[in-house]
Amino acid sequence: MSTLSIRQLAKEYVAGKPVLRDISLEIEGTGITAIIGPSGTGKSTLIRCINRLIDPTSGEIHFEGKDLAKLAGAELRAARRRIGMVFQEYNLVERLTVMENVLSGRLGYVSAWTAFRRKFSNDDIQRAFDLLKRVGLADFANRRADELSGGQRQRVGICRAVMQSPGLLLADEPTSSLDPKTSVEIMELMRDLARENNVPVVINIHQVQLAQRFAERIIGMSGGLVVYDGAPDGLTQDTLQKIYGGEDWLAT
Protein backbone atom coordinates (compact mmCIF):
# COMPACT_ATOMS: atom_id res chain seq x y z
CA MET A 1 0.00 0.00 0.00
CA SER A 2 1.22 3.45 -0.77
CA THR A 3 2.28 6.11 1.72
CA LEU A 4 0.43 8.98 0.15
CA SER A 5 -2.47 8.76 -2.18
CA ILE A 6 -4.04 11.80 -3.77
CA ARG A 7 -7.37 11.42 -5.49
CA GLN A 8 -9.01 13.91 -7.83
CA LEU A 9 -7.49 16.89 -6.07
CA ALA A 10 -8.60 20.29 -7.32
CA LYS A 11 -7.98 23.84 -6.13
CA GLU A 12 -9.49 27.11 -7.26
CA TYR A 13 -8.31 30.36 -5.66
CA VAL A 14 -10.86 32.21 -7.75
CA ALA A 15 -14.05 30.34 -8.60
CA GLY A 16 -13.97 29.07 -12.17
CA LYS A 17 -10.18 29.43 -12.54
CA PRO A 18 -8.73 26.15 -11.30
CA VAL A 19 -5.01 26.01 -10.51
CA LEU A 20 -5.12 22.28 -9.90
CA ARG A 21 -7.67 20.52 -12.05
CA ASP A 22 -7.74 16.83 -11.32
CA ILE A 23 -4.64 15.42 -9.70
CA SER A 24 -4.41 11.77 -8.73
CA LEU A 25 -1.10 10.39 -7.51
CA GLU A 26 0.26 7.50 -5.49
CA ILE A 27 3.56 8.05 -3.68
CA GLU A 28 5.30 4.98 -2.27
CA GLY A 29 8.71 3.61 -1.40
CA THR A 30 11.45 5.81 -0.02
CA GLY A 31 12.92 7.59 -3.03
CA ILE A 32 12.63 11.10 -4.33
CA THR A 33 9.68 12.02 -6.47
CA ALA A 34 10.26 15.24 -8.36
CA ILE A 35 7.49 17.43 -9.66
CA ILE A 36 8.54 19.60 -12.60
CA GLY A 37 6.64 22.07 -14.69
CA PRO A 38 6.48 25.73 -15.68
CA SER A 39 5.94 28.49 -13.12
CA GLY A 40 2.34 29.06 -12.13
CA THR A 41 1.21 25.57 -12.95
CA GLY A 42 0.28 24.76 -9.37
CA LYS A 43 3.32 22.81 -8.16
CA SER A 44 3.60 24.83 -4.96
CA THR A 45 -0.15 24.71 -4.50
CA LEU A 46 -0.09 20.92 -4.80
CA ILE A 47 2.68 20.58 -2.21
CA ARG A 48 0.91 22.95 0.15
CA CYS A 49 -2.40 21.17 -0.25
CA ILE A 50 -0.80 17.96 1.03
CA ASN A 51 -0.03 19.41 4.46
CA ARG A 52 -2.99 21.77 4.24
CA LEU A 53 -1.11 25.04 4.38
CA ILE A 54 -3.57 25.62 1.56
CA ASP A 55 -7.06 24.12 1.68
CA PRO A 56 -7.97 22.18 -1.46
CA THR A 57 -11.31 22.84 -3.12
CA SER A 58 -12.13 19.18 -3.59
CA GLY A 59 -10.52 15.76 -3.64
CA GLU A 60 -8.97 13.40 -1.12
CA ILE A 61 -5.46 13.10 0.33
CA HIS A 62 -4.91 9.81 2.14
CA PHE A 63 -1.91 9.57 4.45
CA GLU A 64 -1.42 7.12 7.29
CA GLY A 65 -5.04 6.05 7.26
CA LYS A 66 -6.61 9.51 7.30
CA ASP A 67 -8.04 11.78 4.65
CA LEU A 68 -6.02 14.96 5.26
CA ALA A 69 -8.45 17.01 3.21
CA LYS A 70 -11.12 16.46 5.87
CA LEU A 71 -9.07 17.06 9.00
CA ALA A 72 -9.22 20.16 11.18
CA GLY A 73 -7.89 21.44 14.48
CA ALA A 74 -5.88 19.08 16.67
CA GLU A 75 -6.24 16.16 14.25
CA LEU A 76 -4.82 18.22 11.41
CA ARG A 77 -1.89 19.33 13.56
CA ALA A 78 -1.22 15.73 14.58
CA ALA A 79 -1.13 14.78 10.90
CA ARG A 80 1.12 17.73 10.05
CA ARG A 81 3.81 16.70 12.49
CA ARG A 82 4.26 13.52 10.48
CA ILE A 83 4.91 15.58 7.32
CA GLY A 84 8.16 17.52 7.22
CA MET A 85 8.49 20.48 4.92
CA VAL A 86 11.48 22.25 3.37
CA PHE A 87 10.93 25.69 1.85
CA GLN A 88 12.38 27.63 -1.04
CA GLU A 89 13.48 30.54 1.13
CA TYR A 90 14.34 28.28 4.07
CA ASN A 91 11.71 30.04 6.26
CA LEU A 92 13.83 29.78 9.36
CA VAL A 93 12.82 31.96 12.29
CA GLU A 94 15.68 34.37 11.77
CA ARG A 95 16.02 35.75 15.24
CA LEU A 96 16.23 32.31 16.85
CA THR A 97 19.39 30.25 17.11
CA VAL A 98 20.12 27.34 14.82
CA MET A 99 19.38 24.95 17.67
CA GLU A 100 16.02 26.53 18.41
CA ASN A 101 15.14 26.33 14.74
CA VAL A 102 15.96 22.62 14.61
CA LEU A 103 14.05 21.97 17.82
CA SER A 104 11.05 23.81 16.42
CA GLY A 105 10.50 20.59 14.47
CA ARG A 106 9.27 19.14 17.78
CA LEU A 107 6.69 21.88 18.37
CA GLY A 108 3.85 19.59 17.40
CA TYR A 109 4.77 17.29 20.28
CA VAL A 110 5.27 19.70 23.19
CA SER A 111 3.08 21.98 25.28
CA ALA A 112 3.21 25.76 25.09
CA TRP A 113 4.81 25.97 28.54
CA THR A 114 7.56 23.58 27.47
CA ALA A 115 8.09 25.53 24.26
CA PHE A 116 8.24 28.81 26.16
CA ARG A 117 10.95 27.53 28.55
CA ARG A 118 12.73 25.64 25.73
CA LYS A 119 12.62 22.55 27.97
CA PHE A 120 12.82 20.02 25.19
CA SER A 121 13.53 16.45 26.23
CA ASN A 122 17.11 15.23 26.32
CA ASP A 123 16.34 12.80 23.50
CA ASP A 124 15.18 15.66 21.30
CA ILE A 125 18.27 17.72 22.06
CA GLN A 126 20.61 14.76 21.41
CA ARG A 127 18.85 14.06 18.15
CA ALA A 128 19.08 17.70 17.13
CA PHE A 129 22.81 17.69 17.83
CA ASP A 130 23.25 14.48 15.87
CA LEU A 131 21.38 15.94 12.93
CA LEU A 132 23.41 19.15 13.01
CA LYS A 133 26.58 17.09 13.10
CA ARG A 134 25.25 15.01 10.22
CA VAL A 135 24.79 18.12 8.04
CA GLY A 136 28.10 19.61 9.17
CA LEU A 137 26.76 22.44 11.32
CA ALA A 138 27.61 21.13 14.79
CA ASP A 139 29.55 24.28 15.66
CA PHE A 140 26.71 26.56 14.66
CA ALA A 141 24.15 25.45 17.27
CA ASN A 142 24.16 28.76 19.13
CA ARG A 143 24.51 31.04 16.13
CA ARG A 144 21.52 33.05 15.08
CA ALA A 145 19.85 31.78 11.93
CA ASP A 146 20.24 35.08 10.09
CA GLU A 147 24.03 34.85 10.38
CA LEU A 148 24.11 31.77 8.14
CA SER A 149 24.62 31.51 4.38
CA GLY A 150 21.86 30.25 2.11
CA GLY A 151 23.16 26.71 1.92
CA GLN A 152 23.67 26.53 5.67
CA ARG A 153 20.17 27.82 6.27
CA GLN A 154 18.69 25.23 4.00
CA ARG A 155 20.56 22.52 5.91
CA VAL A 156 18.99 23.80 9.10
CA GLY A 157 15.62 23.80 7.34
CA ILE A 158 16.15 20.15 6.40
CA CYS A 159 17.16 19.29 9.98
CA ARG A 160 13.98 20.93 11.24
CA ALA A 161 11.89 18.84 8.85
CA VAL A 162 13.68 15.58 9.72
CA MET A 163 13.42 16.46 13.42
CA GLN A 164 9.66 15.95 13.15
CA SER A 165 10.27 12.19 12.60
CA PRO A 166 8.16 12.51 9.49
CA GLY A 167 6.54 9.76 7.45
CA LEU A 168 6.78 12.04 4.41
CA LEU A 169 9.03 14.92 3.41
CA LEU A 170 7.80 17.74 1.22
CA ALA A 171 10.16 20.22 -0.40
CA ASP A 172 9.00 23.33 -2.21
CA GLU A 173 11.77 24.31 -4.63
CA PRO A 174 14.49 23.75 -2.02
CA THR A 175 17.31 24.75 -4.38
CA SER A 176 15.83 27.70 -6.25
CA SER A 177 17.54 30.30 -4.04
CA LEU A 178 20.93 28.55 -4.08
CA ASP A 179 23.94 28.48 -6.39
CA PRO A 180 24.45 25.37 -8.60
CA LYS A 181 27.10 23.73 -6.42
CA THR A 182 25.16 24.20 -3.20
CA SER A 183 22.02 23.00 -4.97
CA VAL A 184 23.65 19.67 -5.72
CA GLU A 185 24.89 19.36 -2.13
CA ILE A 186 21.42 20.03 -0.77
CA MET A 187 19.86 17.50 -3.13
CA GLU A 188 22.43 14.89 -2.09
CA LEU A 189 21.70 15.63 1.54
CA MET A 190 17.98 15.26 1.07
CA ARG A 191 18.42 11.99 -0.82
CA ASP A 192 20.76 10.53 1.80
CA LEU A 193 18.72 11.68 4.79
CA ALA A 194 15.57 10.31 3.21
CA ARG A 195 17.27 6.96 2.75
CA GLU A 196 18.70 6.87 6.26
CA ASN A 197 15.36 7.75 7.82
CA ASN A 198 13.27 5.69 5.44
CA VAL A 199 11.09 8.57 4.28
CA PRO A 200 9.71 9.22 0.83
CA VAL A 201 10.34 12.73 -0.49
CA VAL A 202 8.18 14.82 -2.78
CA ILE A 203 10.13 17.69 -4.27
CA ASN A 204 8.94 20.33 -6.59
CA ILE A 205 11.83 21.67 -8.57
CA HIS A 206 12.72 23.99 -11.42
CA GLN A 207 16.00 22.52 -12.63
CA VAL A 208 15.22 19.52 -14.83
CA GLN A 209 18.81 18.23 -14.75
CA LEU A 210 18.78 18.10 -10.96
CA ALA A 211 15.45 16.29 -11.04
CA GLN A 212 16.78 13.74 -13.51
CA ARG A 213 19.94 13.22 -11.52
CA PHE A 214 18.38 12.65 -8.11
CA ALA A 215 14.77 11.54 -8.57
CA GLU A 216 13.57 8.00 -9.05
CA ARG A 217 10.34 9.22 -10.46
CA ILE A 218 9.34 12.38 -12.24
CA ILE A 219 5.93 13.94 -12.45
CA GLY A 220 5.47 16.58 -15.11
CA MET A 221 2.71 19.10 -14.56
CA SER A 222 1.21 21.55 -16.95
CA GLY A 223 -1.93 23.63 -16.71
CA GLY A 224 -2.93 22.07 -13.41
CA LEU A 225 -2.80 18.53 -14.77
CA VAL A 226 -0.29 15.69 -14.63
CA VAL A 227 1.07 15.24 -18.16
CA TYR A 228 3.99 12.92 -17.44
CA ASP A 229 4.54 10.36 -14.73
CA GLY A 230 7.45 7.96 -14.99
CA ALA A 231 11.15 7.28 -14.78
CA PRO A 232 13.70 10.09 -15.25
CA ASP A 233 15.14 8.52 -18.41
CA GLY A 234 11.70 8.48 -19.97
CA LEU A 235 11.85 12.25 -20.19
CA THR A 236 12.41 12.83 -23.87
CA GLN A 237 12.63 16.06 -25.79
CA ASP A 238 9.00 15.53 -26.73
CA THR A 239 7.73 15.14 -23.21
CA LEU A 240 9.68 18.19 -22.08
CA GLN A 241 8.07 20.09 -24.92
CA LYS A 242 4.74 18.87 -23.69
CA ILE A 243 5.47 20.06 -20.16
CA TYR A 244 7.17 23.37 -20.77
CA GLY A 245 6.43 24.21 -24.38
CA GLY A 246 3.40 23.55 -26.51
CA GLU A 247 0.33 25.64 -26.93
CA ASP A 248 0.04 26.60 -23.26
CA TRP A 249 3.42 28.29 -23.38
CA LEU A 250 2.78 30.10 -26.63
CA ALA A 251 -0.67 31.24 -25.58
CA THR A 252 0.71 33.17 -22.63
Partner: peptide, 13 residues
Protein backbone atom coordinates in the same frame (compact mmCIF):
# COMPACT_ATOMS: atom_id res chain seq x y z
CA UNK B 1 29.82 8.17 27.14
CA UNK B 2 29.80 10.77 29.83
CA UNK B 3 31.95 13.03 27.75
CA UNK B 4 29.61 13.01 24.78
CA UNK B 5 26.63 13.71 27.02
CA UNK B 6 28.49 16.66 28.44
CA UNK B 7 29.41 17.93 25.01
CA UNK B 8 25.88 17.66 23.74
CA UNK B 9 24.28 19.70 26.48
CA UNK B 10 22.53 22.60 24.88
CA UNK B 11 23.17 25.86 26.70
CA UNK B 12 21.11 28.75 25.46
CA UNK B 13 22.94 31.57 27.22
Amino acid sequence: MNATAEMNRWIRF
